[in-house]
Design a binder for these strands. Structure first.
Length: 593
RNA sequence: GGGGCGGUAGCUCAGCCGGUUAGAGCAGGGGACUCAUAAUCCCUGGGUCGCGGGUUCGAGUCCCGCCCGCCCUACCA
């Protein structure tokens, strides 16, 4: 039974290049999941883009001597290229600075406003006197009024841990340029989160047993203290507020988190338009049987398990004060929020400023995408923080990818090519032959179930058990010792090649590039598993920008496909690169401190 | 301050609602084999499951307290 599945991938923030910690949280997991779902016959729509508004972009742009848009243009391109190189199969990876996104974000705002879930309020806010822009709490520091600590931030003192209000700070200064912030009355729109407390609670409780417990517990806990939350900012970089009297104010914009989560919807709509069927997005957003999976790092749980559902409920008119769906119609809430924990780097937190980092681009300039994908799948921060170390990367690559899997492929094809020059027949199968074939066939439902639950570690381990079994089988059968029975040798190699082909299928979601190579080695033609491409597109009447898209219609299906005897085989070339142990030292010397 | 996650063999980690002698991979030690990127296969070592209480016939697995690490606290995934 084919289902519509929306894979909603967290939007990387375009204030710099992304490192491997970022892609271990949202990127690789969402792609493994989507590739599996497509192979299982479901209709997947995988969307994302770069998140390009907000103060941090503005700050970084000032630092680099660029406008916010120029900075966003630069890193949008860098990030899109990196994610493509990782093989992430987005149906559309776009950005938040498109006319379409502006229109959709404004439509959601208007819908919420019409239903009474947004109201204006005058508050005290910190403003940078030189720019007139909002100075977020975190960008203000000063002396803590409680403990006297000097480097307290506007929202919290790192020394005594107390929560602060920037107005309380003694001698507050801007961390951006050292000037003294001014506190002024400013009017902003607030989202009435308390109006959703009840319906959110009901909704979240219905997910009990379904979601990962850490996500659910965290989200339920937040419900106890929901406060109205400002969704606009004093800033000139962002989506204008679509109401009379506000639209033309140069210094009032939607707050970046508000517009960013709407990206899932706007990107789906943009994808539909580009696909030639502008209404197609509705099959993923309004069909009650459609499922939606949101992938992110744990710091984003609050936006996806609390705020985004609240926005959708409000737009649908399903909060405490009811209402009617907006012009787009009622929209589906998330089926599941899949959150990863964090990756650390050699025992430390990733930090660009301290050089405790490896950017995706640098990584891929020296190592294969599949090597990184494998590491993340098998040792990533799936249910708890995990540490990336170069020595473990080396061990996993050389010991598992190269020695166990690559070697099985290589020895099987090599022997078959040398002895037969083609896929041999499997005749008079023995119990051992049948047992191995059965073992690999039986892995499909098991591995599939783990992938569907986003349990990538279990799935990969299970697939590798089949590989170990196959290596054991060859050691037991010793086809290289059989000199007088070529038919038996052929049967053994037939079985080995069948299992290689099965394992290739099982590993396609994790290792799409190498699986494509094996497909070709075994005489397959055409595309096995589609790979993404970066394409330059125009906005109607506007500038051009890169998107990631692709056709992922390949032949890959989640099932064992019988190999065809007689298909010619050539001597294989190694699938994976064995790494020199000295890279560990080299890479460590690149890290700061 | 509030909240979340974790502390299991040298290393990285599995161990859902409590149940017989606590597991895997890697590393280490011994052996076999040579088809394969010296890869593979077999055997092997043994950790008071952070600490202290409690519940129970029985706790790594539930409850309480404490210690340590990481994270979130409204945008650094």
């Amino acid at each position: 039974m084919s289902q519509h599945i929306l894979t909603a991938v967290a939007w990387p923030y375009a204030n710099g290049p992304r490192h491997i910690g970022h892609v271990s949280g949202f990127g690789v997991p969402s792609d493994i999941f989507s590739r599996y779902q497509r192979m299982a016959g479901n209709k997947v729509l995988m969307v994302s883009g770069t998140d390009e508004h907000g103060t941090p972009i503005q700050v970084q742009a000032d630092k680099e001597g660029l406008t916010a848009r120029e900075l966003a243009d630069r890193y949008n391109r860098v990030i899109a290229e990196d994610l493509r190189a990782l093989g992430l199969s987005y149906d559309l990876f776009t950005r938040t600075t498109t006319g379409n996104h502006y229109a959709v974000a404004q439509e959601i705002f208007k819908g919420l406003h019409a239903n009474g879930y947004i109201f204006p309020k005058t508050t005290m806010g910190a403003i940078s006197p030189s720019t007139g822009r909002t100075l977020p709490d975190r960008y203000i520091e000063g002396t803590c009024p409680i403990c006297g600590f000097d480097g307290a931030r506007g929202d919290q003192c790192d020394n005594c841990g107390n929560q602060l209000d920037p107005v309380q700070l003694i001698n507050p200064v801007s961390r951006i340029n050292g000037e003294k912030p001014v506190f002024v009355e400013t009017e902003h729109f607030m989202l009435d989160l308390p109006a959703f407390a009840e319906v959110l609670a009901t909704w979240l409780r219905s997910k009990q047993g379904d979601w990962r417990p850490n996500v659910l517990k965290f989200a339920l806990n937040l419900l106890g203290d929901l406060q109205p939350r400002a969704i606009t900012r004093d800033l000139d970089w962002g989506v204008p507020i679509p109401l009379d009297g506000w639209r033309d104010q140069p210094n009032k914009r939607l707050y970046v988190w508000f517009d960013a989560v709407i990206g899932y919807l706007s990107a789906s709509i943009e994808w539909a338009r580009r696909s030639g069927d502008p209404e197609a997005w509705r099959r993923w957003w309004q069909n009650p049987d459609a499922r939606s999976y949101y992938f992110m790092g744990k710091d984003n749980i609050v936006f996806h398990a609390e705020i985004w559902p609240a926005l959708l409920l409000g737009y649908n008119g399903q909060g405490a004060s009811d209402g009617t769906p907006g012009a787009l119609g009622a929209l589906n809430l998330p089926s599941e929020v899949v959150s990863s924990e964090f990756l650390t780097m050699e025992g430390r937190k990733f930090s660009s400023s301290r050089q405790v980092v490896i950017y995706v681009r640098d990584f891929l300039s020296r190592y294969d995408a599949d090597a990184l994908r494998y590491y993340i799948a098998v040792a990533g921060p799936e249910s708890q923080d995990t540490d990336f170390t170069w020595s473990e990367f080396l061990n996993r690559n050389n010991g598992e990818l190269v020695a166990a899997w690559g070697n099985l492929v290589n020895r099987s094809i090599s022997m078959a090519a040398k002895n037969f020059g083609a896929v041999p027949e499997g005749r008079d199968l023995t119990d051992a032959d049948r047992a191995l074939l059965e073992r690999s066939r039986a892995a499909f439902p098991v591995v599939g179930a783990e992938l569907a639950r986003s349990r990538f570690k279990n799935a990969t381990t299970e697939a590798f058990d089949v590989i170990r079994e196959a290596n054991r089988y060859l050691a037991d059968q010793e086809p290289w010792k059989i000199k007088d029975d070529p038919e038996r040798v052929g049967s053994i190699l037939h079985v080995a090649l069948q299992v290689v082909d099965d394992a290739k299928t099982l590993l396609t979601p994790v290792l799409p590039s190498s699986s494509n190579k094996i497909h070709a080695m075994l005489g397959g033609t055409g595309v096995w598993s589609g790979m993404p491409e970066v394409r330059e597109v125009d906005e109607e009447g506007g500038r051009s920008y890169p998107i990631i898209t692709g056709s992922y219609e390949g032949q890959a299906r989640w099932e064992s496909v019988p190999i065809r005897p007689g298909v010619p085989l050539s001597p294989p070339t190694p699938l994976f690169t064995k790494l020199d142990p000295k890279i560990v030292k080299e890479e460590l010397s690149r890290l700061g401190e």
